[in-house]
């Protein structure tokens, strides 16, 4: 299958010397939902901005639908709709006028029936004559989505779509994403939230410090990212981990008072029960037991330090 977007060896160095992207290569498949995960400043928005034509690449190339984004920008840009991260809207325009503006900007002839349906799908129809200034934050985000979809794109970029969004809009948005996917639209979204990626994406890519660390099917990645830790506090400090416990992946810390066990929540056997029995069997006295889910930040750091080489 030909990729709908193909990014090859893409790098971006901003004029202040900051390297936002470093030799990124990635194919986006037609009709998929791909989530790009990464901490702030990882380069997600830069990657999207280059594909959409907002930022010039320093090196490398991108094709959309087989066309180069620079040589054939008219074709590639007309295929793409972008919902930006910030609520960037002209405040003194009505909802209706702003979606008509967007459609025209992308070279599509007016189609009031389509735009009416779009606004209805986004629960914006009764606000169509309101100035954007008067809308709530959630409504403004809906307007941004309507603008991005106004020219019937076949690829939709959602940059941090759920940042600061309430539960209802989140639900509506995922319903819409689902509907769009069924109509064959390719969706690429960026997020900090791993749960979000798990919920709706087919594939997940992780970007950190301008590099694409891993891109894989959601299920495969879940195993790689879903780490938990159990901290076992001991009554009495020990010098080394007893041989009886050598088959578990344990670390001794806090001056011999704590054993840390890292395990995979998605595996069928976590081994917690056996470990606790073995600790008891080794004659160690338990003081307390804690578990923690590694934060996304930890996971990223972890991935960066130990590359998974699925690239």
């Amino acid at each position: 299958m030909n990729p709908i977007i193909s990014v090859s060896n893409l790098s971006k160095v901003y004029s202040n010397g900051y390297r936002a992207l470093n030799n990124v290569s990635l194919d986006f498949h037609s009709g998929e939902i791909l989530a790009l995960l990464g901490p702030n400043g990882a380069g997600k928005t830069t990657l999207i901005s280059i594909i959409c034509g907002i930022v010039n690449p320093s090196e490398g190339s991108v094709t959309v639908g087989g066309h180069d984004i620079i040589d054939d920008y008219r074709i590639t840009r007309s295929l793409i709709g972008l919902v930006p991260q910030e609520l960037t809207l002209s405040m003194f325009v009505t909802v209706w006028n702003t979606v008509c503006f967007s459609r025209g900007l992308f070279g599509k002839k007016p189609n009031p029936a389509y735009l009416e349906q779009l606004l209805k799908d986004l629960s914006l129809w009764d606000k169509k004559d309101s100035d954007i200034l008067t809308l709530s934050g959630g409504m403004k985000r809906r307007v941004l989505i309507a603008k991005a979809l106004s020219h019937e794109p076949s690829i939709l970029f959602l940059d941090e779509p759920t940042a600061g969004v309430d539960v209802e809009l989140r639900k509506d948005m995922w319903n819409l994403v689902d509907k769009l996917r069924q109509s064959g639209v390719t969706i690429i979204l960026t997020t900090h939230y791993i749960e979000e990626a798990e919920e709706i994406a087919d594939r997940v890519g992780v970007i950190s410090k301008g590099e694409l660390i891993v891109v894989d099917d959601k299920e495969a990645l879940k195993h790689k990212l879903g780490k938990r830790q159990m901290m076992i506090e001991l009554e009495n400090a020990i010098d080394k981990i007893p041989d009886l416990l050598s088959s578990w992946d344990l670390e001794l810390s806090a001056e011999g008072n704590q054993l840390t066990y890292t395990y995979d929540t998605y595996s069928t056997q976590t081994g917690i029960a056996e470990l606790l029995r073995a600790v008891d069997g080794a004659g160690l006295q338990l003081k307390d037991v804690n578990t923690s889910q590694s934060s996304l930040e930890d996971i990223f750091i972890n991935i960066v330090n130990t590359p998974l080489h699925t690239r």
Binding site: C52, G53, I54, R77, L82, T88
Partner: peptide, 17 residues
């Protein structure tokens, strides 16, 4: 003004010379 408010992104991402 569109540069200031950030709405310029839309014009830049549009198929327009």
């Amino acid at each position: 003004f569109p540069r200031f408010t950030g709405t310029m992104y839309e014009v830049l991402s549009a198929p327009i010379s």
